[in-house]
Design a protein around this nucleic acid. Structure first.
Lengths: 134, 134, 134, 134
DNA sequence: GTGGTCTAGACCACA
DNA sequence: GTGGTCTAGACCACT
């Protein structure tokens, strides 16, 4: 699991962790039943206080994305399909919103944005495919 | 000036303001010598405490991006900016890239992303128009 | 707001707080829009670390029972009727479950339990009524 | 022996065990000299780690409520108990009182509470029966 | 004044 | 070994 913290972004560390782990789960990079890096180990890796990691994990547990097994560790929970789809849409919308806001602020016409989108989509989609063929 | 505050992102409001104003200046959307919306008015628009706006402006002044003219208001300072369509396109592309990456990771088809884009575009574009009619 | 902590029950303090505040909100003792005792003040009252109180409040915010207004304080959120009813039923069921378990363990027939229930119901219900007439 | 563990209550499992066993002994439901279910078997029944059961038993032994006979097992010790139907009724009433108080606070009608009671009664009663048929 | 975040370090519960 | 809870105390963000 690759996680990165930006100490200067102003975004609380535990929130950065939540966002990254949530995204990995939604993207299927962390699969159901998989055990997460332990609180202490992740805290060591990131040079962060264990409580900070623990807080992030705890909130993901409240979100039902993680499951705790006492004395063993934390695991990726089984997400219901429908719930998963809704979360994905929500997350995508958030990022897309920023892009659109930028475009509107700059007065860039929707047509142009659509073209850029298509271009980028092709680019990343083909990368994914070629990667999955490796 | 179109600014958007997200109260739930965990990013301090004054930082959100700074980032957005700074970006608009760098992209030449706010031009040198242009007067900024007053603290009070912006605070009203965004339903935010005036102190918060004031703080953002003050920090942008420290950054030398803004100039305070006593008794009159704040103005965009004369500094090196990145001009032109190329800069705007670059900035837009950066945000759009994140959105596309998310979509591809989640396996959301381009068609759906296009629809969401159009929807959001309409939403923000109409906001701008109605505001510019006031 | 009357809150009590039992340091010897083994139940985490923040959970005791959550349960008591949630119950007061559901029972209408804390009404929508009402401001809660501040973290620091409650921490002082209960001779407990502020972070412990803060944690309880934060989780109630995640539950959407509380609303935070930055720099001002925490307030009781407006709960949707349907959601409120479901929560009430859930909480009642939890307490009722313990009672039934006790009854079954002791081999007390359902008929007898029903009688005791009716008796207690009459007793407390009339208390409430007479109180509301004061 | 009917024991119920709630993994989400935050109350340590060994404490839940202690409380329930102690109550059964005090109510005379587990009588003096009676042998307790073995650690292993109880752990299996409750899907809990044997160490946890063992710890609960050990602490009840310290309390002098249980007696260990080496190589044989654990037995209910000869101590002062509260006997009889009166005790059972009292203990039941205490738990039932909490449930009724909750219901009245929430304004839930007695009829509804009666229905929930019946439902739960059936649920736990049938569990006991099916288990006693094993 | 309000709440939020983080740390260092202690101790508990569970496997 | 795992995660959970709590403390004391520092500093930040916001009104």
């Amino acid at each position: 699991m690759l996680l990165q913290i930006d100490h200067h972004s102003g975004v609380p560390i535990y929130r950065q962790l939540i966002n990254q782990v949530r995204r990995q789960i939604m993207a299927g990079q962390l699969v159901e039943g998989e055990q997460l890096i332990s609180v202490r180990e992740l805290a060591d890796q990131l040079r962060v206080n264990p409580m900070t990691v623990s807080k992030a994990y705890a909130l993901l547990e409240v979100e039902r994305l993680l499951e705790r097994r006492r004395g063993i560790g934390l695991f990726v929970a089984g997400i219901e399909k429908e719930h998963g789809a809704r979360t994905k849409t929500r997350l995508l919308k958030e990022t897309l919103e920023k892009a659109v806001l930028t475009a509107v602020q700059f007065g860039i016409p929707q047509r142009k944005v659509g073209e850029m989108l298509a271009e980028l989509y092709t680019k990343y989609n083909s990368q994914t495919r070629s990667r999955s063929n490796e």
